[in-house]
Design a binder for these strands. Structure first.
Lengths: 177, 177
DNA sequence: GACCGTGATGACACTGCGTGCCACTTCTGC
DNA sequence: GCAGAAGTGGCACGCAGTGTCATCACGGTC
């Protein structure tokens, strides 16, 4: 992982071959593929582990708080982390947005967060008498919130003097207004 | 394109090789790559062309209408199209959600729509005195709306007896509520 | 100390994607 | 008829990812 991220930051994601990573880590190409499904997974695990506790943060919010507010607060921990390590976080975010080869991984990351948050959000929504059409409310809320987060992160990564928390506030209040 | 989609629907995206597509279309592999950047592009062009007119639809809405409502209405044309050709649209959506290899293409599609819609939405928002932080309002709104669309489409694809327009209404009203 | 399973490792071969290079054909204008 | 341009296909290459098999180190057993 360490060697891979060194190479990524120096050469970019696409330009780094599995051979290089394996060589730098002192193992064969074949062995690399025994531990990781591919280069993608190196990115994914980092993304996931960097924000595993969002759901707990959400669940810890008072039940009578508006869901949207709880989500905003649940993002706070990650936001603080990123602002604290801006020097590392910004280039990473830029890479995620510019390198086409990583796009699929970002989707996967989104899907994981979606799957984690959706049931937690669903619990907080008012019961709906089971009609014929499926209930998309929780999914829509979570997906939109994640969109706001991504949007804010993207803008923050590209504007050195901006504050992530401010941008996220702006994004999330605009949508519900 | 036609041959490719025949193969995709029969074997799935991943399982279809470029050789097969090229052979089915009566051309060499090399020639295929002269016209398309890869299998992805076959999917992407189909997605893009299937909804090129959303921006016009949005721009045609009255300027004093709430932006969120205008977006909902702008999606209408595509929604109607999909419901009319549900037999084709549903399997396509399922493929987009299940086949990992197409994920990157979906992101690209999203990005295109985002780039198209964002400036149009920005025009409709109240002016904001140019502060230090960048303006993410339009980006956040569009991204959230697209999330709602994707969410609704996903649910619709998986629930045969549901109506896409109903699901989209439910998704979009929930977020702003 | 010799023996044997077990698991980790690495070498090799193979499929598939995507690209660069070059030869060949066809079409077009002079 | 001919030169040039454009389209086409063959070949070779690098890279991702997978299956197969040999090798090697380890711990326990006799």
């Amino acid at each position: 992982m360490r060697q891979a991220w060194l190479l990524f930051s120096r050469q970019g994601f696409e330009a780094t071959t599995v051979d290089q990573i394996a060589a730098a880590a002192g193992m064969s190409r074949r062995t690399f593929f025994r531990y990781f499904t591919g280069k993608d997974e190196l990115v994914l695990t980092r993304l996931v582990e960097s924000g595993e506790s969002v759901v707990e943060a959400f669940r810890a919010r008072p039940a009578d708080e508006p869901v949207w507010t709880s989500l905003r607060r649940a993002f706070d921990e990650g936001v603080v982390q990123q602002e604290a390590h801006a020097a590392l976080a910004r280039p990473l975010l830029v890479m995620l947005r510019t390198e086409p080869g990583v796009r699929a991984t970002v989707v996967e990351w989104r899907r994981r967060w979606q799957d984690l948050l959706e049931p937690a959000v669903a619990e907080r929504l008012p019961r709906r008498r089971a009609g014929s059409s499926p209930d998309v409310r929780a999914a829509a809320i979570v997906a939109s919130a994640l969109s706001c987060l991504e949007t804010a992160q993207g803008a923050w990564a590209e504007h050195p003097h901006s504050r992530l928390s401010t941008l996220l506030d702006q994004a999330m209040t605009t949508v519900t207004a």
